[in-house]
Design a binder for these strands. Structure first.
Ligand SMILES: [Mn+2]
Ligand SMILES: [Mn+2]
Ligand SMILES: [Zn+2]
Ligand SMILES: [Zn+2]
Lengths: 142, 142
DNA sequence: GGTAATGATGATAATTATTATCAATAGGAA
DNA sequence: TTCCTATTGATAATAATTATCATCATTACC
């Protein structure tokens, strides 16, 4: 039987001695339905439509929990505002980011990944993760 | 005759109709002497030793001006705090960043640069700049 | 099922980084 | 020197996130 994101999060909570709450369920539901690269307040506004009483601190706290559980990843681009995306079941990728319209284009180049590993190794460096962002103009905006 | 960073900045100011000020001269001096990847407040503290009266808004404003003039570049890493480094006369490079001690290791791999260009092209994307950061553990910290 | 222990929530305040405002100052063209 | 206005520094404002804490709700235990 294959594990769903809900299974993963539920097991993560149990393992950490954390509790299942209505808010955590709502947040996970909306997170799985949301489009990638959202900002916290975009996400917070979606959640408020469903539950007027939810607090922004709870959204912050639980998005970070989703990251800890390995389901989400934080992306920090120029503005400083944190964005998140689903990583569970998604292959690793990097981003082309349009300077005009803000679009994120997801890309992957295995050759670059390999060369990055070699570059780290050549510097006695043990890589854990990386961020490659290419800024420029997309087809519609160039 | 070869242009110094001071020449570049001076010409930039003239071209933009901006004024030469004591603060701008101090900031450029210390910027050229500073070690790379400093945060604004690290830099601000250095400047205050020289001129107790300098304001932090002035430092912010003028570091951004140095970027506009093409002498500096802003680096935003995890913490959200902006860092700057001298780019004038320095070849382009990327960074390995130690998760434990915070060290920045400067690296360059031409093959990666070329593949990045191809990756952008394959997506109808006109690249302007990029950021490659590999996070992990340096020799001393692994 | 009932209940106590304690983790989670949401309102609010605090913090951190940066930017805007504005009266006073000073660069520099004429 | 005069005058215009860009610049400065103090301060307030903004923006994003995090800490605090009284109250609430989940869960382990009887
Ligand atoms: Mn993505
Ligand atoms: Mn560098
Ligand atoms: Zn675009
Ligand atoms: Zn290190």
């Amino acid at each position: 039987m294959i594990k769903t994101a809900k299974d993963i999060f539920s097991e993560f909570l149990t393992r950490k001695g954390l509790r299942q709450t209505k808010q955590r369920e709502q947040i996970l539901d909306e997170f799985l339905a949301a489009k990638a690269h959202f900002t916290i307040d975009e996400f917070y506004n979606i959640l408020k439509k469903r539950d007027q009483s939810i607090g922004s601190a709870t959204v912050h706290r639980n998005l970070r929990l989703l990251c800890e559980a390995g389901l989400a990843e934080e992306i920090k681009i120029g503005s400083g505002k944190a964005r998140f995306e689903l990583t569970f079941g998604q292959p690793h990728h990097d981003h082309l980011i349009c300077l005009k319209c803000g679009r994120f284009i997801e890309v992957f180049d295995n050759q670059i990944e390999i060369l990055q590993g070699k570059l780290a190794e050549a510097n006695d460096f043990l890589p854990q993760k990386h961020k490659l962002e290419i800024y420029g103009y997309c087809r519609q905006c160039r």
